[in-house]
């Protein structure tokens, strides 16, 4: 189980910053930039959450298999594929949260900061980000929990190779298959604990946000 836990943690260590950057960035674009096809883009980025993981995994497998670079670099059925497999279905959660977070920041506050002599990047760091922070963290907690628990997409693109791509959910599957229920329960308990901790964090962040801005 330790090896599966370490792989899961490594996947998370890479996915969390990617979720923050990609999810936050796309969410900001959708919330703050008016461009052609914005609504279509908004629908498309939500697709991974609607599609069954096996379908998403299948398309991803074929898409990556078509690209020479990924094929030759041995991307599929390796650790990078496990990272991508966990990232993709959890990204829409972060995008949705960050879109709501940035849309919820009063534009006049940013404009006031500009008229007070602050440059746009300073306004983003000193006004926008602190005000959107709680909702962003809620999105990050939920999407990270989803990434940690991914099973279907990871299985399709990374396989279930112990010590290489076997994450905790895949480990549970493997243990159940070999009727080793005690180990499956231990791993499951760990994931339940992480899930509850995420929910508590989300609850705390949300209630804190309401208190401060009341």
């Amino acid at each position: 189980m330790e090896r599966a836990l370490i792989i899961s943690l490594k996947v998370l260590a890479i996915d969390i910053p990617l979720l923050a950057l990609l999810g936050g960035g796309i969410g900001w674009l959708l919330a703050r930039r008016d461009f052609r096809g914005r609504e279509l883009a908004s629908l498309l980025v939500q697709l991974p959450i609607i599609l069954p993981p096996s379908v998403l995994g299948l398309y991803l497998l074929f898409a990556l298999g078509q690209i020479n670079f990924f094929r030759e670099a041995g991307f599929l059925f390796a650790f990078p594929a496990a990272v991508l497999g966990a990232l993709l279905p959890s990204l829409p959660i972060m995008i949705q949260a960050s879109r709501a977070a940035f849309a919820g920041v009063d534009r006049e506050l940013e404009e006031a900061a500009l008229t007070l002599g602050r440059r746009p990047w300073e306004v983003f760091l000193r006004v926008t980000l602190p005000l959107a922070r709680r909702t962003l963290l809620v999105g990050l907690a939920l999407s990270s929990a989803r990434a940690l628990g991914d099973f279907g997409v990871t299985l399709m693109v990374a396989g279930n190779i112990p010590g290489r791509t076997q994450t905790l959910p895949l480990y549970i599957y493997g243990q159940v298959e070999s009727l080793n229920f005690a180990r499956a329960h231990m791993a499951a308990l760990l994931l339940v604990g992480v899930g509850i901790a995420s929910l508590c964090l989300v609850h705390r962040l949300e209630s804190g946000a309401h208190e401060r801005l009341a």
Partner: peptide, 20 residues
């Protein structure tokens, strides 16, 4: 000139105080 270089203060109707 962009707003941050104009040195024109603007007090909004809802004041736009930073709540944080």
């Amino acid at each position: 000139e962009p707003p941050h270089r104009r040195k024109m203060g603007l007090l909004f109707q809802n004041l736009a105080l930073f709540p944080h």
